[in-house]
Design a protein around this nucleic acid. Structure first.
Lengths: 189, 189
DNA sequence: AACGATATGGAGTTGCGGTTCCGTTTGTCA
DNA sequence: TGACAAACGGAACCGCAACTCCATATCGTT
């Protein structure tokens, strides 16, 4: 059915240019970015953008998938960190930084819950989250009543913090809510 | 300058109807609600809506102000609760419930940081927050390094939790991050 | 080189939704 | 109850941005 002919060289090149441009524009303006701007930045006609992505929606979705893969990458490096607690901190911090720099991600979190859950699943992020949590619990540095999805929960909630305030501070509060009842962060200063 | 003639009776009536309708429509669709829908629901022509609110933006803002006053009201009742910790829990819970039921509020949180801070100030919400926090700290049931604005911080972050997950759970985590290091909530179950 | 198949650019189309305008209605006041 | 200002309704207007279309250009294959 869906014959997968290889793209012509110029087409492949343009596709990449479009994605690159779109990443930049959508990061700044979220889903209300304008296709014309993407085309202009990619040095390509609007028609070309539509040849590759039949809909603004489709382009947005492709970008979102990208981001989730990057998140999965982060989770993976997090698993590589020896200290399990630091692994979790690393992941949450990087994930939050990613969102803060990119409206695309936080918009997906807010407005496309189902897509988010599906994609997290299909790119292995969910499972990595579970393992990250499990490992920390085994080491006794994370409360036992936390689940893998709570990492997503926290990420989303950090995405809700507007620029006037700092998600870093909220993260500190949330992290203290995750620890077993021993040592807490000092938020003063 | 701005002569304040009293509104004619029908005008006053319509204004209320518009606000009421707008509250309903904006709660569901956020700032991308449509003026025509508001007019229809208020049983009024579009022109009338524009007579009372020169701009969609202006209507949105009026609604937002409303919400902040309601939040201030909540903070006030919270101060009336004997147990200072329960006061804080009450406030955060009610505030979150309000957002969950009303896209207007969470949109202001997300996209209009400055307006939010100003309005919180001008309707006394900021000060009430400070007092709520202070009182709890005096009673020793709240970490000393928390500030009044952290209530806003937490509210915003709860607004970021999409419907697929539950803000209640995130609130529990955050609350545990607020407590002095003694008794924590049991998130299991 | 030459010929299809594939891909491109960008002017034009379309639809949507905020805003305006004005002929009509309603309230108020004498 | 008559007259005037205030307010109304909703068709029409207008700008904006997603999307289409097709004459033209480019690629890859023989």
């Amino acid at each position: 059915m869906t014959e997968e002919r290889p793209l012509r060289a110029d087409a492949r090149r343009n596709r990449e240019a479009i994605l690159k441009a779109a990443r930049h524009i959508f990061a700044k303006h979220g889903s209300q970015a304008q296709i014309d701007d993407v085309a202009k930045r990619a040095k390509v006609g609007v028609g070309t953008v539509y040849r590759h992505f039949p809909t603004k929606e489709a382009l947005f979705e492709a970008l979102a998938r990208d981001k989730f893969e990057r998140l999965a990458g982060l989770a993976d490096t997090a698993m590589g960190i020896e200290d399990p607690w630091e692994g979790i901190v690393f992941f949450l911090k990087e994930a939050a930084a990613l969102q803060a720099a990119d409206r695309t991600l936080s918009e997906v979190f807010r407005d496309h819950g189902d897509f988010m859950v599906d994609t997290a699943q299909s790119c292995g992020l969910s499972e990595l989250g579970d393992r990250l949590v499990q490992r920390a619990q085994d080491a006794g540095v994370l409360r036992d009543d936390i689940r893998g999805t709570d990492l997503g929960l926290i990420s989303c909630s950090l995405a809700g913090v507007p620029p006037v305030w700092s998600w870093e501070r909220m993260l500190d509060i949330a992290l203290d809510g995750l620890r077993p009842a021993d040592r807490l962060t000092d938020l003063a200063g």
